[in-house]
Design a binder for these strands. Structure first.
Lengths: 273, 273
DNA sequence: AAAGCGCTGTATCGTATGTTACGTATTTTG
DNA sequence: CAAAATACGTAACATACGATACAGCGCTTT
């Protein structure tokens, strides 16, 4: 069974004429980048002419050059999204749990695409006390919304978790305006009810902060800030762990920003018990 | 110092207009593949027009689109040629977030003290369908109970999350017996109400599975299985992320064990929508 | 409430890219 | 050794791609 294009090439490289073989070798040499460049660049790198490159990809079974490039990109996408290809680091005791390893990878990847500044911006918005904060989640992610709401509600007023039936929180739209923030958690399979809700909130000028997966919920169209977490794990379910950690990080950042006001508020709450 | 284009983007994403921000988000979401495609494909993926994409790359400082693509390819080349740089480099990615590093450490430590056999035993008990499963959590951990309940309830019947006021779930004790399982989440500061509840359930012979922190909730006295997660992070709050990951791992394990029966159940549920 | 500014999309243009036809060189075979 | 077949490159072509000008719209500001 031949799965990757690289295998396909090394399989047929023996039957190729000299020029095409040079093309194959240069492609394998720094795979797959050369194949993503233009035909002219590819041919220059291989030291052959453009038609030779085209004959080369034709021999591999592709109808035209763009089709060949698309195949390379798909392959690269699969490779980049599943860090399984990454050599298992022997440091962590190795055969711990593939589930754990995947989760740790997801978190690293998620934060790699999340700059400190971006997190700071979002935290600043959440800490901005001129408006209210609403949180809501989907079928499996609503607990994350609850978790975040439970913490935020302690350090600042006007934090509301939207729970229950759709009709209930839809009516809460009337309370929302430009100064308010709506935090939405929505991963595959995206819920239409949430999309509708987000759209209406957006129309009212509400600032939306979206927690979603790397395939981006349609709500990203309306969102001011989008946090794309990795969710792929060797399980029947997707993992929300990366989003959970981002949420915790934000909770910490907001707490730090509100330290002055927040500390007093916490003390007041303590004395209420 | 800004080294990668991804950093450059997340650095300036705050100052971008809405359309360009959507472009930036879709690019970051599955970086860097979208940037290697044509302008038309990029714009379609982001849901904006072609000129917006071009304005986006112009704002990043590139003279034209091909130059932008070349930069992405160079970056990808460097990344592919040295795969060692991706795993655990304390230089660039390491200093990202001390919060993240602490969380990752917590998870590794948590799983280090958690044997495969122990996880398998707990999963087996959760998958045992002779009794009912109840889940409950504390002030901040109740969302974890909800999260776990949301998944377990799909693959098997008789899964109940205990919510609301104490008096409500206290009355549910009457439904609990020897064959039943009670999953409790309780971290500092431990809630008396939960301890009381756990004790009564224990007296009724209920099997208790406890998620707690490394200092062990007093409920551990009554628990059949104890999962001690690390919670220390550089924040004003404790982190429940490690417990969250254990919960997800268990969800996956239970799902696998119930695969035969569970798969049918999932299909039935799908057809109900 | 009105005016100005900035952002975004539509339509058009020039160009670089992939493609193909054809002639020459090189190898293979009788 | 000769002749044929295959391989390769040059050059011309058409397409599709990136770039740009312009108009409409929403938003902010006075």
């Amino acid at each position: 069974m031949i799965s990757s294009i690289a295998e396909l090439i090394s399989d047929r490289i023996g039957t190729m004429p000299a020029g095409e073989r040079r093309a194959a070798q240069t492609l394998i040499a720094n795979y797959p980048l050369t194949g993503l460049k233009t035909v002219a660049e590819f041919s220059a790198a291989a030291g052959v002419s453009s038609p030779t490159i085209l004959r080369f990809v034709a021999r591999l079974g592709f109808q035209n050059y763009p089709e060949f490039q698309s195949a390379l990109q798909d392959e690269l996408a699969a490779q980049l999204q599943s860090p399984a290809s990454r050599t298992l680091d022997p440091s962590s005791g190795g055969a711990a749990s593939p589930m754990l390893e995947a989760t740790l990878d997801n978190m690293r990847e998620t934060f790699r695409h999340l700059s400190d500044k971006q997190l700071a911006d979002i935290a600043a918005r959440l800490a901005d006390r001129r408006g209210k904060t609403f949180l809501i989640g989907g079928r499996f992610t609503d607990p994350l919304a609850r978790y975040m709401a439970a913490h935020l509600a302690i350090i600042q007023p006007d934090v509301y978790h939207l729970a229950g039936q759709e009709s209930i929180w839809r009516d809460r739209l009337i309370d929302m305006g430009k100064r308010d923030v709506l935090v939405i958690f929505d991963i595959r399979r995206y819920q239409e009810s949430l999309v509708r809700f987000a759209e209406k909130a957006h129309q009212r000028g509400v600032q939306i902060i979206l927690f979603t997966d790397q395939w981006l919920s349609p709500i990203s169209r309306f969102a001011r800030h989008v946090i794309a977490g990795r969710t792929a794990v060797p399980s029947a379910w997707d993992s929300s762990a990366a989003l959970f950690v981002v949420a915790e990080t934000l909770i910490g950042a907001v707490t730090r920003q509100l330290e002055a006001a927040g500390a007093k508020r916490i003390r007041d709450l303590e004395s209420l018990r």
